[in-house]
Design a protein around this nucleic acid. Structure first.
Length: 575
RNA sequence: GGCAGCGUAGCUCAGCGGUAGAGCAGGGGAAUCAUAAUCCCUUGGUCGGCGGUUCAAAUCCGUCCGCUGCUACCA
């Protein structure tokens, strides 16, 4: 069995992520990882994520909280890790881009690029704030826009007239941090990655993925190539980050660190090394990242569309460039699954404006599976999609409470009342059961295919169709009627229905894992959680007569209209 | 300004060259095991506007309108 490596875009360490971040990478990656573990065995799947901890915004956020950056990063790493666990994100390892392993890997790749002549030192002019004692990225310089007169224009772009700017264009420029006008332009040298040399190679690679990768991914990547790749600065004048080693450029860049976008994707590898070290097999990571051992690895990356340029240009150039001089080649990504935005009432989720729903708040309100189901079923796969509380409540109430939850409840309650707490014996499968099995064969096939193709929205639709088929079956078999005239027939259909619950629990597990676990536990079927590969007929006979079961408490409560109203008020959705 | 994406039933979306689809909401019926939960049937659209290509266009091309995003030292 071939192996599969799955990475989710790294959440930035700067605070707590919102549902848009979750649905754009971590959640679908988790669904895929859970599915793949069931298909090919957990040992053949590696699911990696980490916090992205370097960069100016993190340093500033730390200043804001009055914490040293290292402590700040550690704090928010722990918080994000805990919240991720709350959502059931089943990372094999959730690492940190500030780890020693990532430092080592980043420096190793940079050295290889330097040796191969893919890096060069260039002098650039950068704004320096004397008051803040630091270089300022363009967007942290503010002033009056020379075009429209807006007095809070940023150095990279005016938010008012949307024109692209240079910090020197600004009238009365000042630091966005302290507001101090005591700023100056200083020369500073940096390493540049000569990515323009890889244009043709990248283009051929991306073209070959057209129609295979999501539309957003190839179109964004080609857009960048069409505009012409520019060489990119990969170091910064910061203290927190991976230091540039002295053996690059004869130590000319002493004291500087790599740009966060250089070391962040490398942390996919770094985190794999963290994982290997943690399990006491320090070389185990190479089987996933170094050829030829990793020849049988299919590597899939999940990310939001904002991340696409870095994963289709920057990171691949790093890998391709390093591979020119490496003895053993590094693994390049096979598939990129990109997502659009999840909007909040038609606008963007916004951390700064406190607009939208954040992961910690979501878990305070409702259990993870409510969110997982809604988000996967409405994932912004082909276009932006939008979250509203009304839509969320309607989806959860109908799909989870009415269709799935009520199915389980009606079957198990009836079964207990008429046959006691064990699967009844007697009767035989008839036309209704054969019909059900035939429908399931088709539905499961489609569902599995969609999961395999990472079409999450369609997969959710298909899974829901399976839940509906279950209700249809019970309606046709009508054991409550049969029980009066032909108890054996009723017993046979209840036996089938309980087996159907087990099958549904397994099929639903990638998307709603907590619910799935609760169902399997109620049925005492934790060991019967393998993905169905044979005929449904056999799947519906796994639990034999006499097998005991329990009736779990109601699985999904409905959201009442006044609750929806309260959420809108609390989260600013009432427009 | 440039570039990209989107605009399909009341809502959320699928379809992307061959007589308009799903779920929800709305309407009618059945059933009464169940969280008044389910099941069946059903009303809704000249597929943003205008031109063009084609035997045939939501589907390809052009143009206009509207919305959104990106524009690379924020990630």
């Amino acid at each position: 069995m071939s192996r599969i490596l799955i990475t989710s875009a790294l959440p930035y360490v700067n605070g707590i992520k919102h549902l848009g971040n979750l649905v754009g990478s971590m959640l679908p990656a988790d669904v895929f990882a859970r599915y793949q573990r069931l298909r090919r065995g957990a040992a053949n799947v590696l699911f990696i994520c980490a916090t992205d901890e370097h960069g100016t915004p993190a340093e500033l956020a730390a200043l804001d909280e009055g914490l040293p950056i290292a402590e700040y990063a550690a704090k928010y790493h722990d918080i994000q890790k805990r919240i991720g666990e709350g959502f059931g994100l089943s990372f094999d390892h959730f690492g940190r881009s500030s780890s020693p392993q990532n430092r080592e890997t980043t420096q190793e790749l940079a050295r290889a690029l330097w040796k191969g002549g893919h890096l060069e030192v260039r002098t650039t002019r950068q704004v320096y704030s004397n008051a803040d004692k630091r270089f300022l990225p363009d967007r942290y310089v503010i002033g009056t826009c020379p075009h429209c007169g807006y007095d809070r224009a940023r150095g990279d772009q005016c938010e008012n007239c949307t024109r692209v700017l240079d910090p020197v264009d600004l009238i009365e420029p000042r630091s966005a941090l302290s507001g101090s006008p005591d700023i100056e332009i200083r020369d500073t040298s940096h390493l540049f990655l000569k990515q323009s040399a890889f244009s043709d190679l990248l283009r051929a690679w991306i073209e070959s993925k057209k129609g295979v990768w999501s539309h957003v991914v190839t179109s964004i990547a080609l857009k960048w190539l069409d505009e012409g790749l520019r060489d990119r600065g990969i170091t910064r004048d910061l203290e927190w980050g991976v230091p540039v080693p002295d053996d690059i450029a004869d130590g000319q860049l002493k004291g500087k660190v790599f740009y966060v976008w250089f070391d962040a994707p490398i942390e996919y590898i770094g985190a794999t090394r963290e994982w290997a070290d943690a399990r006491g097999e320090p070389d185990a990571w190479e089987r996933w990242w170094k050829l030829p051992e990793a020849d049988d690895v299919r590597y899939v990356e999940f990310m939001g569309k904002d991340n696409v340029p870095f994963h289709t240009v920057g990171f691949p150039v790093t890998i391709m460039g390093a591979n020119r001089t490496a003895n053993r080649q590094w693994k390049l990504v096979d598939e990129i699954k990109g997502f659009n935005w999840l909007n909040y009432y038609g606008g963007k989720f916004s951390t700064s404006q406190k607009r939208g729903v954040f992961m910690d708040q979501a878990l305070e309100i409702l259990p993870a599976d409510y969110w997982r189901w809604y988000l996967v079923a409405n994932a912004p796969e082909s276009a932006d999609s939008s979250f509203t509380w009304e839509h969320f409540a309607a989806t959860v109430n109908k799909d989870l409470a009415d269709v799935l939850g009520n199915f389980v409840n009606r079957v198990l309650k009836f079964a207990t009342a008429k046959f006691g707490g064990a699967i009844p014996d007697g009767g035989a499968a008839g036309p209704a059961e054969h019909d059900l099995a035939a429908r399931l064969d088709k539905l499961i096939g489609q569902y599995t295919l969609h999961l395999e193709e990472m079409q999450f929205r369609k997969a959710a639709q298909e899974l829901r169709a399976i839940w509906v088929a279950a209700n249809e079956y019970v309606a046709v078999a009508a054991p409550w009627t049969a029980f009066k005239s032909d108890p054996a027939a009723a017993a046979a259909s209840i036996r089938t229905a309980i087996n159907l619950i087990r099958l549904i629990a397994v099929l639903s597990s990638p998307i709603v894992p907590h619910t799935s676990a609760a169902l399997l536990q109620a049925l005492g079927a934790e060991d019967l959680a393998d993905w169905p590969t044979g005929p449904a007929e056999a799947e519906l006979a796994r639990l034999a007569p006499g097998h005991p079961f329990a009736v779990p408490p109601v699985m999904f409560a409905k959201l009442a209209p006044d609750a929806v109203e309260a959420f809108e008020k609390r989260f600013g959705g009432d427009f």
